[in-house]
Simulated scan of single mutants.
Amino acid sequence: MEQLEDEYPGDSDWNVFVRLYEEDYLDDNARTLAKVMDGYLDMAVVLNGKRGLEEGLWWIEQKVPALGNKRPADCLKNPKLIKRLRTALMRMP
């Protein structure tokens, strides 16, 4: 079965994507999200832009079907799952 990490566009595209969000969403809310995301400020900035602090904190602890029913918090310790999470964040409306 194909997983989201198989469609990860690469670190270069991810970094370009993050820079788009940093302009408006690199703030104290993003830093708060990063603390609960094992210090991943890049993903925290995007999540802050897509969902905001309150919903972002909630979402991190939920099982997400697009992540194979894993919690985003569970994806932070594994490089393969980080790619899955980044791809999900890039696709999130």
Rank of each mutant, 00 (worst) to 15 (best):
R71N: 08
A73H: 04
V45M: 00
P9F: 08
G68V: 11
L67N: 07
K35S: 07
L20M: 08
A34I: 05
P72E: 03
P72V: 02
G68S: 02
L26M: 02
G39N: 09
I82N: 07
Q62R: 02
R71M: 02
K50S: 03
V46G: 05
Y21D: 07
L57K: 06
V36T: 13
P93I: 04
T32A: 14
D27I: 00
G68N: 07
D24Y: 15
L67S: 07
G56R: 01
R51I: 01
E7R: 10
D74I: 05
I60D: 04
E2V: 15
R84T: 10
L67A: 09
P65Q: 00
T32S: 12
A44M: 05
D38V: 08
R84M: 11
L4I: 10
L76W: 09
G49V: 06
A66K: 06
E23P: 01
W59N: 02
E5Y: 13
L76D: 13
R86I: 03
V46P: 06
I82C: 07
N69K: 00
C75E: 03
V36K: 06
R71Q: 08
Q3W: 15
M1P: 15
Q62N: 01
C75D: 07
E23I: 01
E22Q: 13
E54N: 01
E61V: 03
P93C: 00
L76C: 11
K35G: 05
P79I: 11
E5V: 05
K83P: 09
F17C: 08
W58A: 00
G56K: 04
A34K: 09
D27Y: 07
D42C: 06
K77E: 14
N48R: 05
M43T: 06
P65W: 03
R91I: 12
I82Q: 15
W14R: 12
L47F: 10
D28M: 00
E22C: 03
Q3R: 15
G52C: 00
A34Y: 07
M92F: 14
V36E: 15
P79Q: 09
D28Y: 02
G39Q: 10
L53T: 01
D42H: 02
D38S: 13
M1T: 11
T87K: 12
L20F: 12
Q3V: 14
D42W: 12
K83N: 13
T32I: 10
E61M: 02
G39P: 10
N48L: 09
R71K: 10
K77G: 09
M92H: 11
T32D: 14
R86S: 03
L20D: 07
K80Q: 13
E55Q: 02
A30S: 08
K70M: 15
V36C: 03
D6K: 14
R91V: 09
V16K: 14
L4E: 15
N69V: 00
R31G: 03
L47T: 03
G56I: 04
E61C: 00
Y8T: 09
K35R: 10
W58P: 00
V46W: 09
T87D: 12
R91H: 13
W14T: 07
E61Q: 10
P65I: 00
K50N: 04
N48Y: 12
M1L: 13
E23F: 06
C75R: 02
L33N: 11
A44F: 10
T32Q: 14
K63F: 04
V18P: 08
Q62F: 06
C75L: 06
